[in-house]
Design a protein around this nucleic acid. Structure first.
Lengths: 222, 222
DNA sequence: TAATGTAAAAATGTCGACATTTTAAAATTT
DNA sequence: AAATTTTAAAATGTCGACATTTTTACATTA
């Protein structure tokens, strides 16, 4: 395993990022250097370099001489992140509708079909559903053609993951919520193909904000 | 100097960030560990931790076993960053116009006045002008009340600094360009106070995109 | 001379050690 | 017993050293 293209710091960064956004470590949890070294079998330097990158990504905070902590979550932060996500997604879709070509349309229809078929199954495996769901939304915005806006979109999506998982726990069996979701996706597809920017923007913003109230409840029960 | 509230890594991060966006190091320049250690008088660990954060901020890139480099600039990146900045700024202003109160208005008028007075002087010191200019634009968007959107705005502004400095070199004596700029600021103030979202958005996007063509020329001559 | 191969030099990434600070526990005082 | 001080333990941040890889300089061959 010596000839891996990534250095140790980059590898740990992946693991740590995942473990934090998937809730392996809780918000505000202390991240002891010693413990992490043992867990990931690495030395001090690459570990601290990975943590440094997580600081820049706002997933970890550090206090001088007091170590590293998983960054906190809160209702204010939840609202702000989802609001920002909604606006950015809306922006991307607007630009995609302006610039999207036949291939964008075709790809979007295909992604919609894949999500639809899977959503109608009796037994839905949440991992696969999330993949197809994310793929549909990406197909919508991919026409916007801005690397920076995509990067911002991705980073906000990543930050929202810890909150989204609270929603998924509530709705893994809630088929009614999934149904509404499905209808919204169908409407989004139509509006995009009709190039109705205004309506598409309005709908996507509402679509992204939908889970916020439910997550608020889960959060306040914590 | 032992009891400074920041650790070494955080201090170097500030210096490095500044030195990169102010052009002390050029795009694609190799950042030798040894050289940097000597220059900033620090050890390997905090230096690499600072560089790790700069990687997350896209100001530095690294290749395994080949070290660190200042990230490149290009016409494509210039356009993308300014386009993204324009859209984000537009978004913030839209939200600010929706939510802004009397204090937002008052503060905006004050900031406009400070910029105006300074712009009319015979001898303009560019550093002070930049401060007042940035303050005016911040006063415009501050009503939007979203920490995350501000953070995105700031990070895009920081990324655009290397390009902006190219513009400033061209226009430090170009009073005609500054005049147009001044008129646009006056118009922005009026539109904001009139709560004319649509016109304000359109103008701010054009305003931010204005320097792009000039910078393109400077870039292609490099 | 150009191309290829080899040896030396330089640079990177990782580790363990150490001084300093923080935290926890024990002892002392009020 | 509660509050404060003292002492011990644990954890952090920084450094220099070292193995490994890359780069450069030089020599060999076609």
């Amino acid at each position: 395993m010596k000839n891996s293209r990534q250095n140790t710091a980059a590898q740990i960064l992946e693991s740590l990022t995942n473990d934090i956004i998937q809730g392996e470590y809780s918000p505000r949890q202390k991240l002891h250097i010693k413990t992490l070294k043992d867990r990931y079998n690495v030395g001090t330097s690459p570990l601290r370099e990975a943590l440094s990158q997580l600081i820049a990504k706002d997933l970890v905070i550090s206090e001088n001489q007091r170590g590293f902590y998983v960054s906190d979550i809160s209702i204010e932060d939840l609202t702000d992140i989802y609001q920002a996500r909604a606006k950015i997604e809306s922006l991307c879709i607007e630009m995609a509708i302006e610039k999207g070509d036949d291939f964008w349309e075709a790809n979007l229809i295909a992604a919609s079909h894949r999500l639809n078929k899977y959503s109608k199954l009796d037994e839905i495996e949440m991992g696969e559903w999330q993949i197809r769901h994310a793929a549909f939304h990406e197909a919508l915005v991919v026409g916007c053609m801005s690397p920076r806006l995509f990067q911002i979109r991705d980073s906000l999506f990543e930050k929202s993951t810890r909150y989204r998982n609270l929603w998924l726990r509530e709705n893994v069996t809630n088929t009614a919520a999934l149904k509404i979701n499905q209808n919204e996706h169908a409407a989004l597809l139509i509006l995009a193909l009709e190039r109705d920017k205004k309506a598409a923007k309005k709908l996507i913003e509402a679509h992204i904000m939908t889970p916020v109230e439910i997550i608020k409840k889960s959060l306040s029960q914590l």
